[in-house]
Nucleic acid binder design. Structure first.
Lengths: 406, 406
DNA sequence: GCATTTAGTTGTTGACTCAAATTATATTGG
DNA sequence: CCAATATAATTTGAGTCAACAACTAAATGC
């Protein structure tokens, strides 16, 4: 048994280097698959011998498998390596109106995906979700599941193990995570939806090139995920990122969070619908996509409502940009479907009057299903993320011990 | 010569472990000096033999020296180790009205300190500053200087090598850093004043225990330094932290930055003076300390002006707290002199109506001279901070090469 | 067939941590 | 005074790892 380090400081052992380099190689394979050992050595700067040892270990750990044999103008043919996509992750995106459940492989490709309604009855919805997950596990029983990742419209408190700040969901506090874990027998990871989107960008989007960016999710409310110094900012008790509930006007309308004049009161999908209903002096059961369609078909009042919303969106973003100086602002939500309309409007809000430096690029999220894809990253973080190497070693150790004792 | 790694990924070599552990031991000595090798081994979790090798290296590098011999109830006496305080750092705090220059040892203790006026003439002031630094170097010629650290009321752009956003200073852009470097022959590090205060907290205050906190400097303007995930958030082009220039009211009074209704327009020392002058319908040459004294002696209008300022301060802090979920908010500035008056008022602003979680502690900065002490940390970061180990190895290499070639 | 080129493996070396043995130096109790 | 004991610090040997170099494997072109 390896002794656990009870001290506060984190010292390096002889295996630290291997752990780091294992992570580097594993992530290079993930990003550039299929890739040969020789190319891994070239791109990482490690020796070919070292790469061979590490890839051997990764194949033994079943993270990597041999792919096809390459073909070159001269010389011995390379054997390509790629991730073992028999390893899969169960994912879910819990939203106030609708929940999406799916299965994805380690590359973030979805093997299966379905939706179910989210009701106000928290227990019932949770059990239905757990049942769906169990069902997907039997459908894809040929895969090895690494865990369950769920994006939530709120915060998960480590200390109380509860979803603690989800005003748009309206559920009472209960053991959501534990319920799913017991029903599925899998480890469950919860993360705020905006943070999940940020993870998706880093893992399946531009990668670690952009070290400072902000994700703004615009739907029923407004969520923000902040990536700074190449890391997700979680804050004390994982509560960081609630810029959606910063008051723009302390005397403004009431927000679902209990405050007044929060940013999301002015800039969410709900806000646009409210603007529209105010202007037509009635309130039918219009949805935000309906409003988008109306504006697209030339309804001036719908367009005006959306313009007000986008203006408010830009105002709040200026706060984020002043504070974080991100390189990009990534927007997630239904309004990105008409990016041609909204993109330039938001960009122009950020292009002028900001203190110093270059204004950030504003762009819609890469690909669809950012939330769901982010939860894949959430689960994979433990195996692929920084300092994952040593954890894997420990795991391998204990497996070996089990074999020896059996 | 060690080959430099041109690849994008950062791989570990056989020396990585030593680099990490060297940093751990060096910082333990810094924090807990005087300390014996045996205690270092106990507290770090490293083997005593490893600690001996590392401390030997640190003594060879002249970062550490032998201290007094200890005394224990039984057994061999330990030889204490401590930092070599013959190594010193030149520090300066450039403020719109006054500049402080000083010399500090590696422990952040000031050996010498003096002030000079900051004028609108940037060249003249810079040359006067350089002259003061040169003078201090001759006065303390028995020390080895590691570099110059300067805190500035603005931002230093790496790309242009200029101070780029310092509206309260009012200097044109010019090569401030290069001028000082040429005049002194030392490497100069510049950092925003609020960030410097944050560094001071981590290096000479509570340490790495608090991983998420925010520093708010209140003087001519308002500056913010954000520490999240145990790191200083610098953002793209080091522009992060300009929350002082987030507009609270887009139609508010003009700010020195060119915007309207910025937070600092409502919550800085200047704002309090403006409130007071408005209420007495005149504007004499009152300073902020004068205003504090007036309020303390019972002037109701002065008290009211300060209350308005503190209220605005709290309003902006709520934005920071919502966004970062810091564990503490640290306040720097003249107003902390009457903390008994302002502390509870600010705390109560943050205690109610914030989404979920615990409200952060609000407290004044530890010790005095936070800005200056922070610049000490700024210079030491390179030697003591994470990943410093390998840099030191490179440096030692080149020194050895020089010796060999001579 | 043979030089050439590229992929991947094997064996050696040096750097490092760790564990255990050893040395140094103190106190205490006969 | 001398053994027993306790603690600090060093020395020595073992194991792990990356770097390096030499090697084998497998392809192409003349």
């Amino acid at each position: 048994m390896r002794r656990i380090n009870f001290t506060n400081t984190q010292v390096a052992s002889s295996q630290t280097a291997r752990g780091i380099n294992r992570g580097v190689v594993l992530n290079l394979i993930r990003r550039r698959q299929p890739i040969s050992r020789a190319d891994l050595a070239r791109v990482s700067g490690l020796q070919r011998s070292t790469v061979s040892l590490i890839t051997e270990q990764l194949i033994r750990e079943r993270w990597v498998v041999h792919g096809p044999i390459g073909r070159l103008p001269r010389g011995r043919r390379p054997t390509f390596l790629r991730l073992n996509d028999r390893r899969a992750i169960l994912v879910a995106d819990l939203r106030p109106a609708q929940t999406t459940v799916g299965v994805a492989d380690v590359n973030g490709n979805f093997l299966s995906q379905e939706t179910m309604p989210t009701t106000r009855d928290s227990r019932l919805t949770t059990e239905a979700l757990a049942a769906k997950i169990r069902h997907l596990m039997t459908v894809h029983s040929d895969r090895v599941f690494e865990g369950v990742g769920i994006s939530i419209p709120g915060r998960f408190s480590e200390s109380s193990q509860r979803i603690v700040f989800a005003p748009n969901l309206g559920w009472p506090e209960f053991d959501f995570k534990g319920t799913i874990e017991q029903a599925t027998g899998m480890r469950v990871e919860l993360e705020n939806a905006a943070n999940a989107c940020a993870l998706a960008e880093v893992w399946f989007g531009h990668g670690e090139k952009v070290r400072d960016f902000v994700v703004v999710t615009v739907s029923e409310g407004i969520g923000t995920g902040v990536f700074a110094n190449g890391q997700l900012i979680r804050g004390f008790n994982s509560m960081a990122g609630e810029f959606g509930h910063v008051p723009l006007d302390p005397n403004g309308p009431l927000c679902t969070c209990g405050g007044r004049g929060c940013w999301e009161v002015y800039a969410s999908n709900r806000a646009a619908l409210r603007y529209y209903h105010e202007s037509i002096q009635s309130s039918d059961g219009l949805t935000f996509p309906d409003l988008l369609a109306l504006a697209d078909s030339g309804d001036p009042l719908a367009a005006k409502a959306l313009d007000r919303m986008v203006h408010a969106l830009g105002r709040g973003m200026r706060m984020l940009v002043s504070g974080f100086a991100p390189e990009e602002v990534v927007v997630v939500g239904e309004l990105t479907r008409q990016w041609r309309r909204f993109g330039p409007a938001i960009q122009s809000e950020l292009d002028v009057g900001l203190p110093g430096g270059h204004p950030p690029r504003v762009r819609p999220a890469e690909g669809t299903m950012a939330r769901l894809r982010g939860t894949v990253a959430l689960v994979l973080q433990k195996h692929f993320g920084p300092s994952a190497g040593l954890q894997e070693l420990e795991a391998e150790d204990s497996r070996e011990n089990q074999v020896m004792s059996s």
